[in-house]
Amino acid sequence: MVKPKRIIIKEEYCIGCRLCEIYCVTKHSCAKEIIKMYKEKKIASESGICFEEKGSISFAIQCRHCDDAPCLEACITGAMFRDKDTGRVLHNKEKCVGCWMCVMVCPVGVVKISQSEKRVASKCDLCIDREFPACVENCPNEAIYVVDYEGKKITKE
């Protein structure tokens, strides 16, 4: 199995700005213009991020793309699948019927219920079409970063 790259979370450096969510939503709404998108309510996706905050600690967590992903086993439609080329756990909104089995078994609690189009499951896809997930690229403090399958940090330089 190809191992996916992963997003590592350094909760000690999360500043709680939640920009990751903004950029995730923008990216998945296929918008280039943040302002227009928000102003004209063209938001076509929810963020794949679960943001948690208590006192001074906060972090943003998204699908871990588990090696032994329980959501894959639980999915009754095959909508949740492992992408052979990248090793990611991806989700096909067309196929999904919204049975919430994946919500039930995800130990990280990161499968959301989509409110935007169809009432189906929704989660992080590690930004399929780009090198750096939008959240990682825009985190001002590198509180989230990507590592390759060997756990080596991938940087822009």
Binding site: G16, C17, R18, L19, I22, I34, I35, Y38, K39
Partner: peptide, 13 residues
């Protein structure tokens, strides 16, 4: 206000 998308990042930080 034409640019502000009310993300509240400034409020939070």
């Amino acid at each position: 206000q034409n640019r502000c998308i009310k993300c509240h990042a400034c409020v939070r930080v």
